[in-house]
């Protein structure tokens, strides 16, 4: 499995090197929007030192962590997901279905998006600096890393579920941006939202928890919500796997 993944990564790298300008531009735009987030945060906190107990550094920690999760998902899975919708709609899955590999994971990890690696590394370095100022205990730091990994799993599962819907409905491509919009809206302190919205996105679709939980571990405020997000992510992954298998039964080849 690892050997196959290495080949897929090498192919992705070769493709990236072919479109060097695109790579540089995509990385630049990632940095640009992150910078806008930083400036906007700076404006908010120029009027008040804290918002619901979050100071500017905590806020930076939150948006940087949210970006870290988002770029890690983009680096590892987004190119595979974009490709998968086309493969399903064009009826081109035959070759991968014939291979002696797990088709779910083969398509999920079909390509890595190297331009996102640049922004991922940059965000990682900034987050490292922020964490060094927040001084989380080693246990909290470990749980921070766990929470980020759970977050990547959650974003992957949401997108996988959306993408696999292509087996049943075409023309849903516009909906594929919804998980991204949801995660963008979740990159804020949960408490700014009215109670109903908080409960909905902390417990039912825990996108707010996914961004807020690691940030809380970062500034030494451990929370049991991590267990809940891990559980929901696990359930979503199982759902996406079952959906994939059901989808394959609906699949019509165009070859």
């Amino acid at each position: 499995m690892l050997k196959i993944y290495r080949v897929l990564v090498t192919q992705s790298l070769a493709e990236t090197m072919t479109y060097r300008v695109t790579t540089v531009l995509t990385a630049l735009f990632g940095v640009l929007f992150y910078a806008i987030d930083l400036i906007t945060g700076g404006v908010y906190f120029s009027f008040t030192p804290t918002i619901y107990g979050w100071n500017f550094l905590d806020y930076l920690n939150l948006i940087t962590t949210a970006n870290l999760i988002s770029y890690a998902y983009q680096f590892l899975f987004v190119a595979g997901h974009e490709d998968l919708v086309d493969q399903i709609l064009d009826g081109n899955l035959d070759y991968s279905l014939l291979r002696p590999v797990n088709s779910y994971w083969f398509h999920a990890s079909y390509r890595v998006d190297f331009p996102s690696l640049v922004t991922l590394l940059l965000t990682g370095v900034i987050e490292g600096v922020i964490l060094s100022k927040l001084h989380p205990t080693p246990l909290n730091l470990l749980l921070y890393v766990v929470a980020v990994i759970v977050g990547i799993g959650f974003v992957f599962a949401l997108n996988q579920i959306m993408v696999t819907l292509a087996f049943w409905v075409d023309g849903l491509s516009a909906l594929n941006g919804l998980p991204e919009d949801l995660m963008d809206a979740s990159a804020r302190p949960a408490k700014i939202y009215p109670r109903v919205i908080q409960q909905l996105f902390l417990w039912v679709i825990p996108s707010l928890a996914i961004t807020n939980v690691p940030a809380q571990f970062g500034h030494n405020q451990p929370t049991w919500l991590l267990l809940w997000t891990a559980l929901v992510t696990g359930v979503l992954l199982v759902i996406s796997y079952i959906e994939w298998q059901r989808g394959l039964l609906k699949y019509v080849s165009a070859n």
Partner: peptide, 27 residues
């Protein structure tokens, strides 16, 4: 509709953030 929905979500996020800023700045 989706374009409007996305815009509406973005606007809501910014509105809640600004209301929190007003609230905590006491202004």
């Amino acid at each position: 509709v989706l374009n409007l929905l996305t815009t509406a979500v973005n606007v809501m996020v910014t509105i809640f953030m600004w209301l929190a800023v007003y609230n905590f700045s006491g202004r």
